[in-house]
Structure formats: C-alpha cells, structure tokens
C-alpha cells in the first residue's frame, strides 16, 4: 500500500500545474524515500525531474516500491475540485489499478474522494550527469516569468548572457528585437527579491523561449528560481517545492551549426 498525506494539498496541485504543459502523462516512482518523476516532453528537447521527499509529507507510507503511470491532464482536472486549504491524501491500495485522491476541508466538514485509473506507460530514463555549472543566476520567479513572456513577443529564441555584473536576456524576430538586463542586487530588504549571480565563467546560451514559458508554470511554487548554465550544456531551471523537494527542468540549447 502507498499512502501520503499533505496538510497543504495546494502544494501538490501547484506541482501538477507546473508539469502538465510540458508532460501530459508520466510515471511516478514511489519508494520509502519519497516520490520522484522524470519525463521528457514529446519532442525530446526538455526534461523534467521532480523530487518530493517523504519527510515533507504529514504522513507517508510506502510498503513496496511502485511505478504509477498517471495522466497529469486528468489529475489536474481532479485537483481543481480541491478547496484551497484542503488536506490531500494520495493512496494506492495493493493490487489496485487506480490512485485515490482524498480531499478534506480544514473544518473537517467536507470530505471528497476521487479515483483515477493508472496507465501503463513506456518510460525511458536518462542519466543526468552531475555538473559543475559555470554560472548560477538566482532571481525572483515572477520576474523570470515576466521576462520569458515578454521575450516570446519578439522571437522564438532567447539568448541568455551572464557575466559577473549581470544577466541579459535578448530576443529578435520579424517584428524587431529587444533585451532586458538585470544587474546583481547590491542591497535588498528581502532575499526573495534579490538577483544574485555566482559565476566562474561568462556564458552565452540560446534557448527556445516556448519551453522556458512552460517551465514558468511552476513559478507559483517558489519565490525564487535558479538558472544554472554552462556552455554547450542544457540549462537547469530549478524551483524549490517548500523544503520537501524540487522541480528541475532541463532544456537543450540551440547550437550554431
């Protein structure tokens, strides 16, 4: 049997909203350590890796490792029926072909239960190498979302150039071109508003902005986003999930022929 209870069910709903544009169905790997998921988008340009550690749940029980094939599209629809302060319990009974989502209102006066049929999915796993990135940019996730949305107006690609002083996002297309430059914050009251850059080597990388905009669907999970970059290496775009885990999106760059 698998059962995991999350006092703030809305966190789980935000995780699903963060994933479901990039991947419509995925296999969840459940073990005693927690829940993990790795999936590529249908064009195999981007990869997402999710970790939710067991100690982040209010209660967690996993008697044996399980691989659960789940339609994220359907799960998202079910989770929309959850109240914003509801407690969420996810359960898979032994020998069952369904996942049960139970939602309980804070005053314990309303209790809803939905079942979703599990799917048999072919999943390929990729080995993600440990990388010492040349540059890590930390910035407010709302700012990153706004920049990606604005860049998409100008063109299909965005070039991210990072130096020790700042990071520049630039795009050009048929309508024209533009760029936004952020300097490293020197003095901020709140850490979550800061832009910080850890740099060993300057980098300039070009990415399809459409994917960055899909990654930004996970921005409501976290005030800050980390962008880790090295030349000729996929970008790692990370949103923390509270203190229980993270969503890491990897995006292959566009490379000059």
């Amino acid at each position: 049997m698998f059962e995991a209870r999350l006092a703030q069910g809305s966190i789980f709903a935000k995780v699903i909203e963060g994933l479901r544009e990039l991947v419509t169905e995925a296999t969840w790997e459940c073990s005693g350590n927690g829940i993990t998921l790795q999936a590529m988008d249908s064009s195999h340009v981007a990869l997402v890796s999710l970790v939710l550690r067991s100690d982040g749940f209010e209660t967690y029980r996993c008697d044996r490792n399980m691989s659960l094939g789940i339609s994220l599209t359907s799960m998202s629809k079910v989770l929309k029926m959850m109240g914003k302060d509801d407690t969420l319990t996810i359960r898979v009974n032994d020998d069952s072909d369904a996942i049960v989502l139970s939602m309980e209102s804070q005053n314990q006066e309303e209790f809803a239960e939905y079942e979703l049929r599990l799917m048999d999915l072919d999943s390929e796993h990729l080995g993600i190498p440990d990388t010492d990135y040349s540059c890590v940019v930390k910035m407010p996730s709302t700012k990153f979302s706004r920049i990606c949305r604005d860049m998409a107006i100008l063109g299909d690609s965005v070039t991210i150039c990072s130096t020790k002083d700042g990071v520049k996002f630039g795009a050009k297309g048929d309508v024209g071109q533009g760029s936004i430059r952020l300097n490293q914050s020197t003095n901020v009251d709140k850490e979550e508003d800061a832009v910080s850059i850890e740099l060993r080597e300057a980098v300039a990388l070009t990415f399809a902005v459409r994917y960055l905009n899909m990654f930004c669907k996970a921005a409501p999970l976290s005030n800050q986003v980390n962008l880790s970059m090295s030349e000729d290496t996929p970008l790692m775009c990370e949103f923390k999930v509270g203190d229980m885990g993270h969503i890491r999106f990897y995006l292959a760059p566009k490379i000059e022929d």
């Binding site: 981007a46 990729l126 399809a208 996929p234 995006l251 022929d257």
Partner: peptide
C-alpha cells in the same frame, strides 16, 4: 543558423 539539440544528445539513456 542555430539548430535545436535534443536533450538525449546531452543526457544518455539509462
């Protein structure tokens, strides 16, 4: 011209 690489070009299949 720039070419979009696949993620499998960088990360090997397990």
């Amino acid at each position: 011209t720039m070419t979009q690489k696949s993620i499998t070009f960088f990360f090997g299949k397990k």
